[in-house]
């Protein structure tokens, strides 16, 4: 650690950043296919229970995060109905970074779905009809016409989801606690530092990191979306 840049933060802070990025990336990437599917369902299909599905997806946005975290704990904890089923397969969420990823995925899901759903609604179904008259099967139309056209919306949704996951605190700390090196994400670390005497300095540095990560995610995706649009 000879670089002054690296010395700027202590090992525990670096660990929190690394863990946060890992948790957010995993949460975003693994939930993205499901988010695309749910967004498509909500944008393009009319089925009984449409409102219920929409409500369930948006629930984490409205519920107090501590409630979501508690519900995750009693469902996916080692004693919970789902947690107990998954434990023999080595899939454990409680008090692990995987639990933090699950909490982040659920909390960011409504934002990701919303952005992608708007993308689906903006695609002209007449283009998909044209593809159908040219003989393309529906799945092929989805992959070659619909998905490329909503790529900017997927990018925007994923970025928004990533930023939300980086900032997730309430559900995460309730579900997986705040164990340094195991479940202590960036916001949890800031919270822990603020509880300690003399922790304001390192906390402020982590706050700056949060701002830089969030800003670069948003600016980066805008840049990509604009480059995509320019190719049209």
């Amino acid at each position: 650690m000879s670089l002054p840049f690296l010395d700027w933060l202590g090992p525990q802070e670096w660990q929190a950043i690394r863990l946060s990025v890992q948790v957010s990336l995993v949460a975003t990437i693994l939930s993205l296919p499901l988010a695309i599917a749910v967004a498509w369902l909500l944008a393009r299909r009319n089925f009984p229970g449409h409102g219920l599905v929409s409500g369930l997806v948006h629930l984490p946005l409205i519920l107090p995060p501590v409630v979501t975290g508690y519900l995750l704990l009693i469902t996916f904890g080692t004693k919970g109905p789902v947690g107990r089923l998954l434990e023999p397969f080595g899939i454990i969420f409680a008090f692990r970074w995987t639990g933090a990823a699950l909490a982040a995925a659920i909390m960011s899901f409504p934002l990701t779905v919303r952005a992608i759903r708007l993308g689906f609604e903006a695609v002209d179904p007449k283009l998909e009809q044209a593809a159908a008259t040219l003989g393309a099967p529906r799945i092929w139309i989805f992959l070659t016409v619909t998905l490329p056209l909503i790529f900017p919306a997927i990018l925007a949704g994923a970025t928004l989801g990533f930023a939300k996951a980086m900032g997730e605190f309430g559900a995460t700390i309730t579900f997986v606690s705040n164990i340094p090196g195991k479940t202590q994400t960036l916001p949890s670390a800031i919270y822990a530092l603020l509880e300690q005497p003399g922790g304001e300095g390192p906390a402020m540095r982590l706050v700056l990191v949060s701002i830089v990560v969030a800003l670069s995610a948003v600016i980066g995706s805008e840049y990509l979306a604009r480059r995509m649009a320019a190719r049209r």
Binding site: D124, K126, L127, A131, T133, G135, V145, L149, R231
Partner: peptide, 17 residues
């Protein structure tokens, strides 16, 4: 897909990407 009818629409409907 199975009708084998080619369509030319007023708005062309070319794939923009």
């Amino acid at each position: 897909q199975a009708r084998r009818i080619g369509c030319v629409f007023q708005d062309a409907r070319l794939f923009p990407h």
